[in-house]
Design a protein around this nucleic acid. Structure first.
Lengths: 194, 194, 194, 194
DNA sequence: GATGAATGAGAATTCATTCAT
DNA sequence: GATGAATGAATTCTCATTCAT
């Protein structure tokens, strides 16, 4: 008699979308974007192929939503610990803690993001946003490094950004046990004020 | 009328293979591996699809040969400048010169290699070789850093490797003018003996 | 709270059905039957997909009801002006007036009908009815032309029917301003008794 | 040893294309464009689905080539009998002979063409060409009717064009035996000079 | 009566690979 | 060695229809 309420529908929608995104993300990260078919995602998620298209316009759109989620979540994690009034070294510590923590807990998302980072055929839209965030990150870094004892803050933030990306690349790709925590400490020590 | 000699055939083979590899590499680097069809490669290279299969077992095999070439050429470049008897800082300088030079001159090959670095669906065989080289590289690095004034040579070589990969990643992906030479100098200075 | 009466329900039904039919007809006429999805109709009509199926058994059934409405309305218009006791030329005049008027006021319906006229995949049931009407029309025409000064009334009615269909085809499809009224007058003049 | 010659390939191509076009045309005419799948065409033609796409860019492109062929062939047939120096009535006779002959021998092609004539979703490109031919046809008609004893040559050519289209519509769609030849004679007689 | 999430069959299209010549 | 027509499996995507609420 009574139709489902607006809220009920919304809840169903959210659950389905999350299910699809989680499943797709894992498969993309594991087998690569191109090697993961919609069929496989649907089967794994326990839904029909058609349902995917109720929620996402295309396979590409699905991917992009996943990637944007990752960026957003990580940015929020970093934002939360930011205290511009803290001493610079402490800021650096907190940001690195947040980033390394985020990488570890979201390892699949990041595997996917880095795996695709250089693939122009699939990243056009996301790349712009990532570049934007990158710029913001660099500016924040510049402020911090300007207050630390480094030879050239501008170069330092550039090198530091590359270093982080390199570490994450290695952590995500090189199997076995990468000593992520130790590496973090080792790097931090270099910037520790005497 | 006159049958071609063995040598002539071999020359033809080499020329065809090089032609195919060069063409494929450029297309792969530009449009991505999955988005580049054999047809497109054949058309661009001015040969027939069938001929491709005379020289390469499959599309994947073609890709792998290209990637292995890249690794080989770069390794050779580094090997050539290696003088274990040189002072450590000088060794570091020479290796970095060779690597940065190689990245710049082989930019397309490297773009392709990094674009695929994290794609397990396509890299299985190459990855092992790359890992092998990586290990050799780390050992060489360890020897050098052990002679330099660093807190922990093992950690240092790890961080250094990540830093290089990060820089190359940025150089290859971020459009515009990355100050590759300046970055190299800035890093080197950190290791300069006082 | 107060249960709606039978009549109220019926009124709701009629309103909904008309709404759906009008919307569907316009979309069909504009974009073609196959290119118009049930979703689009529902969205455009401001109702749910499910509701459609409360009123019409299928997409095809919806189309057929629309087409039959068109035929029925036009037939009624012609019937209304029919006066068998009128002089034949006057009858011809009145019928043509009614038909040309109908085409102009129901232009969307007719566009749809002619667009589909030759598509067997969709018209099976409607076609029979149309053929039936066609036959009736021919008989009426035969009576009229028998009283007019034409070489062969049977042939004349056949040619006349084709002529009307051809004119409507042109009017409906050829963009710009088809001189429908002038054409009507020009044709009528041919049958005018001296 | 020796590869197929250019000519051999061309012959194969022509044969395949003709096979595909003939098969598709019949299926389109019989079941409608939208209701005929590429699979069905391929199966009927005894080829693989893929081969279709070697020769035609898309299903739509296939359709358009078929339609343009029809228009071209018919135009050629009319052109061949055109003798501007002939007396006008004789010209009219010859053109009608050519057109009626063409309709009868190419009945399937014409069924298809008229079936789609009003379907905007599929005809965009062809329609322009058809309109162009239509205009040429009208001009030729105008010259002829200007020399015949008709009330208003401009109106007459318009009405005449509609008449022809209407007749063909009826002939193509109304099953059973349409007296095409008799209709032609009946019409011609109307324009016969006394 | 009304809703819209879910289904699943089937559509068009792509493309690595084979093979006869 | 060289060609390109032919294949067919896999892929993305569409959409009429169903059904629980």
């Amino acid at each position: 008699m009574s139709p489902k309420s607006e809220d009920q529908f919304e809840a169903i929608r959210q659950k389905s979308m999350t299910n699809i995104k989680e499943t797709a993300m894992e498969l993309f990260a594991h087998n690569g974007y191109h090697s993961t078919s919609i069929s496989k995602i649907a089967k794994e998620a326990g839904i029909s192929k058609g349902l995917m298209y109720n929620y996402f316009d295309s396979k590409k759109a699905l991917l992009q939503e996943i990637l944007l989620d990752t960026i957003e979540v990580t940015e929020a994690a970093v934002m939360e610990v930011m205290r511009p009034e803290d001493p610079p070294y402490e800021q650096l510590q907190k940001i690195m803690d947040a980033l390394f923590e985020s990488i570890q807990s979201d390892i699949h998302h990041w595997k996917l993001l880095t795996a695709l980072a250089a693939q122009k055929d699939v990243m056009t839209d996301v790349q712009e946003i990532a570049l934007e965030k990158q710029k913001e990150f660099m500016e924040t870094g510049l402020k911090i490094f300007s207050q630390l004892d480094v030879a050239d803050p501008e170069m330092e933030v550039m090198v530091f950004g590359a270093l982080l990306d390199g570490i994450f690349l290695h952590y995500l790709n090189f199997p076995g046990d990468y000593p992520l925590e130790a590496v973090k400490q080792y790097i931090l020590k270099k910037y520790e004020p005497k």
